[in-house]
Nucleic acid binder design. Structure first.
Lengths: 263, 263
DNA sequence: CCACTTGTATTGCAATCCGATGCACTTGCA
DNA sequence: TGCAAGTGCATCGGATTGCAATACAAGTGG
């Protein structure tokens, strides 16, 4: 498992406003990314490139504040409930989500399939709102989950609104590993999807993230016309013919996007 | 609007392991609790009892790390996407949620109403998993949202598993303001509900949080038999007779609780 | 148009955080 | 049974690091 890039040492150099202790504390919180179980003090120290002493103090502090906790068996540390308070504030105060929420609920009422809103963050699309339908996988239902931009309907729709050189940069830097046998990892093939998205105003993705899933995505544009997020609707190929899915869902997504952007 | 208690100065006294800078940084993040719009540097400083200089450096650092951002109009600061990464790690690594998730999905399939799981945090019940049904309000659907323990079905169910002196302490310290005209704020009335919950193994709440809503809650017990969370099912009084709701939903909730605790 | 806000930048001083070390305890292997 | 390596927790002197006062440019509202 590749350790995430937690190295903020470079940032620090020659930045008198940068508070090292705070940064290290946040690195401790971020150390849990990609991890599957509780982390011991030594592991936290290793993953953050911080000495055990410092890690001890930072963990101690985060613990007292309710952001970290010791596991029941005392063997390691995990994020604690305080994190959800931050989550709530983020979601609640996000202007885009405030505007989008009613429209998303309306959309879900109409399509009766899973509806998501994900935020564009360069290489990643970060799920911020999920309206499930029937069956659901596991972690996939969690807020904050991320999927790569290069292989999702929403990502394609977003890239369709970026200038070519930005698309090129994004694809060049992407870590393209296939999530399913059908995931497109060839830049040319992806560019083709983007071209289609530019024509249609939406993108249709077949089994890019999950086998048996068809997804239709539309981009949401921010103030200066730059794409900031995407709406997805996901259905099952056992119930939908792809073209039928597009015919039925695309207009509804388009209208939802319009109604969000018009506010 | 009452400012939340962000005063960690007391904790600090005589705790050599406490990292002040980190604590202050987290206080900055927590400063957004209860706020309805972006916060200026001065406001952040005021709400955290930190000098403007310090607030500036902390905000600067949090910004560089993606936890805070400047609003488009440059008028203030808001939590940024980095928060959702922490959220995802918290949700994903929480052992209870890992176990509960499949059972909750199953429950929702059966009842076709909104199903929630909320974590017991003393005075508050914090929503950690939400499976909406049809109509929904906005903030109400967000992860990390909290409702008071004293006036929710889940809170009553949880208190039913606490010894009396702890219930007394909780009610004594509760800030009981009615959320609807029917919210129970009389300790005696609440104790009665708790008594009923002890008999039934679940609690039924009528219009305690929202008018027109009926909710049934069951407590989830942790390792040593202490309540740690609750499951809720919420329906509309326009569609359900309360007793009918109980008859139909209670057994399903009970079974879900059992299946979660048995893991 | 002036007074007041906003975010940003600089700098000397000392408090704060750093990190090496050591302890008490549990776990697992021999 | 006993050693070794893991755990979290505690101590302490020194200098790095964050502190707070101050100043600046830009923008707002009266």
């Amino acid at each position: 498992m590749a350790s995430p890039d937690l190295d903020f040492a470079a940032e620090k150099a020659g930045d008198p406003l940068f508070v090292q202790s705070l940064a290290r504390g946040m690195q401790v919180m971020a150390a849990f990314q990609g991890v599957e179980r509780a982390l011991s003090l030594a592991e936290i120290a290793a993953r953050t490139s911080i000495t055990r002493s410092a890690a001890q103090r930072l963990v101690h502090t985060l613990r007292k504040m309710g952001y970290l906790r010791l596991t029941e068996d005392g063997r390691g540390f995990l994020p604690d409930l305080g994190v959800l308070d931050l989550t709530y504030d983020y979601l609640r105060l996000n202007p885009l989500l405030r505007r989008a929420s009613p429209a998303l609920l309306e959309l879900r009422r109409n399509v009766r399939e899973r509806v998501d809103l994900s935020l564009f963050d360069g290489q990643r699309m970060v799920y911020a709102a999920r309206m499930q339908s029937k069956r659901e996988m596991f972690f996939a239902t969690l807020v904050g989950n991320t999927v790569p931009t290069f292989c999702t309907s929403g990502g394609w729709a977003v890239m369709a609104h970026l200038p070519d050189h930005q698309v090129d940069a994004l694809l060049a830097n992407a870590d393209m590993k296939a999530l399913t046998p059908r995931t497109l990892t060839d830049p040319a093939a992806i560019r083709e999807q983007i071209a289609m998205a530019r024509e249609n105003g939406h993108a249709l993705a077949l089994e890019q993230i999950l086998m048996g899933e068809v997804a239709l995505g539309g981009a949401i544009l921010g103030a200066e016309g730059r794409p900031v997020a995407a709406i997805h609707v996901a259905g099952s190929l056992s119930e939908w013919e792809p073209e039928e899915f597009r015919r039925r869902v695309a207009p509804l997504v388009a209208e939802t996007v319009r109604s969000i952007e018009s506010l």
